[in-house]
Amino acid sequence: MPKQPIIEIEDLHFTYPGDSAETLRGLNLSIEEGSFAAVLGHNGSGKSTLAKLLNAILLPTSGKIYVCGRDTSDEEHLLDLRRSIGLVFQNPDNQIVANVVEDDVAFAPENLGVEPQEIRRRVDEALKTVGMYEYRLHAPHLLSGGQKQRVAIAGALAMQPRVLVLDEPTAMLDPLGRREVISTVTRLCREQGMTVVLITHHMSECVGADRLIALSDGTVTADGTPREVFSQVELLRGEGLTAPATVRLLYALRKAGFDVPLDALSVDECADAVAGLLRRAGRL
């Protein structure tokens, strides 16, 4: 059975008021329900703007966006739209609204007028999902960056959305926090079937995605599985993006005349490829 697209973008143009240049120039995308899509782009590529357009914080200058079949410019159903799409932003400090972790997670269902017992249940469930249940009574400003960001994810999950959009959730985190967040998000998609849209400029975070969309100057420059996109090293370099270290190594080897595949993304795969090369050369 073919999966239904949960986000559909049709010929999307967006210009910030007072800006002469278009930020997004004719975007066409559709994202399947339950998939893990990564949107990759450097600063100014329009990727954060896209996140805000998805939940109607911004409205398209022209073109249409449908989330769960609902037009984002339909003001009457604004709340229904926003509850179906959870957003997590870059700076964890600026999206946590309460002084206690569980109160913060409860914010969205409280806004939606959910019954108190049901809020309690959702909050506990969301906190357990992101592995922050033991911290439910802590003050957010005393948590680490990765933990704060997991709380923010729980805050979005408590709305019971169908899509989770993360706008550079790891940009302000250390490597450990980055791993925490990415593994949480990946697990959410794989185990709970949550549709995840991860917006980032870290290539390495896209490795686990089903699909990688490279955005540059407001248009899609590459779209495919991470393997397909990453092997286009030249194209990526032109866009100011760097492929993961593994791919760059293989690319350099290939350029030097060795026969290695370009799509070995993980460190293990890459090591196998290099080992295979050495074995063939009789050095191992």
């Binding site: 609204v97 914010f107 007028g113 108190p116 709305m159």
Partner: peptide, 22 residues
Amino acid sequence: ELAIAMESRCYHGGEGRTRMKQ
């Protein structure tokens, strides 16, 4: 940023708001 994050979490004023901790 906070305002955007609050809006994203369906904040729309006090109308119809409930509380987890009664």
